[in-house]
Design a protein around this nucleic acid. Structure first.
Lengths: 196, 196
DNA sequence: ACATCATTGTTGTCGCTGCCTACATTGGCA
DNA sequence: TGCCAATGTAGGCAGCGACAACAATGATGT
C-alpha cells in the first residue's frame, strides 16, 4: 500500500477493476459509484472526473469486455488447426468459454442500449466479433471446404448460433452439463448449415 | 376514473402494466417502485404488499413476458402451413417479431439471474420455448422431412440460432435492414443444419 | 526557475430511492 | 355480526447519483 496522496495515479483503471469485481460478485444492479470510490480510497465525487455518470462506467466496462473477448477469440482460432472444422470448433469453444467465464459482463455487453452514442460504439464492437466468423467462412470457401456463395448468407446465421448458444448457457436456460454435451452437436450443425 | 377508495382493486395488475410501459419507454434501470405507486394513486409502501422488492416485480414481468411469447409463437406456428419449412419460417419470424417488438422485456427475460429461486423458474420458462422448436423437429422427423436421429442434436442448435439472431436484432448489433435481409438466409441455414 | 492553469481531487448538499416498522381500513368468512 | 387476514398508509432511515463550489497538483511554456 501506498501513502494516501492527493492524486490517485490511475483512478480510472482502479475504478474499472473494482467495478468488474463487483459485477462478477454481485451483478450490475448492485454497483455503486460511491462504493467504488471508497474502495479506491478517494472521495465520493472523484469518479465523476473519469465517468460522467454510472452508465458511462458501465459502457466503458462493456467496451473493455468486447476488446478482451475479441482477443480471446482470435487467439483461440490462431492456436487451432488448419481445417475449417477445427477452427470453427475452436471459435465456438472460445466464445462459450468467455461467455460462461464472464457471465455478467457478457450480459452488460449485449444489453439493450438507451443511449444512441454508446449504442453505436458497442454495436460496432459486436459486429467486429461477427466479422471474425465471417473471415473463417471466406477462408473456408477459398480453400474449397465449403461451397462458394455470398458469405452473408452463412456468416450471420453462424454468428447467431454461436451467440445464441452462449447466451442460453449464460442466462441459466442451459445447465453446465447441457453446455458441454451440446457444444459438439452445435458445431456439427453449423458445419452442415454452411454446406460443409 | 374512479373515486379514490382505500383498496385499489387490482393494484398488482396495475403495477405490472405501469412497469411494462416504463420499461418500454425508459429501460429497466429507470424503473422506480415509488413512481409506479404514484401513478397507481397509492402510497409508496403499497407495492410491497404485492412484490417483496423491486427484483420480485422484475421477475414477475419476465415471467409474464415468457407466457406472452410462448402464446405468440404457438399461435404463429399453428397459423402456418403444414410443411416443416413453412412452420420453421413462421417460428423464426414470430420469435424475431416478438423480440424486436418487446426489446427491453426480452432483455429482462434473458438477463443473468442472481437469485437461485427466480433463476430456476425463468430458466424453466425459457426451456419451454425451446421445446416448441423441439416439437417442430420431431414432427418433421416423423413426416420424413428431415433425417431421423436424436432430436437433441438439432433442437438445441436450432433454438440457439433463433435466440441468437433475435438477440443480435434487439441489442443493436443488427440494423432493422439487416434483420429483414437476414431472416430468409437464417431459415435456409437452419434447414440445412437439420439435414433437410 | 517559476508562474500559469487544466486536470484531478474534496466537501457539502439536494432530491430521490428502496426498504423497514408501526398503524389504519377494509371486506370476506365463521 | 364480529373477527381477522389482506391490503393500504404514514413516517423514517441510510444510501445513492448528480451537481456546485472550492483545493491541490503537476505539466508546460517562457
Amino acid at each position: 500500500m501506498q501513502a494516501r496522496r492527493y492524486h490517485h495515479g490511475d483512478l480510472r483503471a482502479a475504478l474499472l477493476a473494482s467495478a468488474e469485481r463487483v459485477l462478477r460478485e454481485r451483478g450490475s444492479g448492485e454497483l455503486s459509484l460511491r462504493e467504488l470510490a471508497r474502495e479506491a480510497g478517494v472521495s465520493h465525487a472523484a469518479p465523476s472526473r473519469h465517468f460522467k455518470d454510472k452508465q458511462a462506467l458501465l459502457d466503458a466496462l462493456a467496451r473493455e469486455g468486447f476488446d478482451r473477448m475479441d482477443a480471446a477469440l482470435r487467439a483461440a482460432v490462431a492456436a487451432a488447426g488448419e481445417s475449417f472444422a477445427d477452427r470453427l470448433d475452436a471459435l465456438a469453444r472460445a466464445y462459450v468459454g468467455f461467455a460462461t467465464g464472464n457471465a455478467v459482463l457478457l450480459d452488460l455487453m449485449y444489453t439493450v442500449k438507451h443511449d444512441a452514442a454508446a449504442s453505436a460504439e458497442l454495436a460496432a464492437a459486436s459486429r467486429r466479433l461477427g466479422e471474425l466468423a465471417f473471415s473463417l467462412l471466406t477462408d473456408a470457401q477459398a480453400r474449397g471446404e465449403i461451397p462458394a456463395g455470398p458469405v452473408e448468407a452463412i456468416g450471420l446465421p453462424v454468428f447467431s448460433t454461436l451467440h445464441g448458444f452462449a447466451d442460453l448457457a449464460v442466462n441459466g436456460t442451459l445447465t453446465p452439463a447441457d453446455v458441454t454435451a451440446g457444444l459438439g452437436p452445435v458445431v456439427a450443425y453449423m458445419l452442415r448449415g454452411c454446406g460443409g
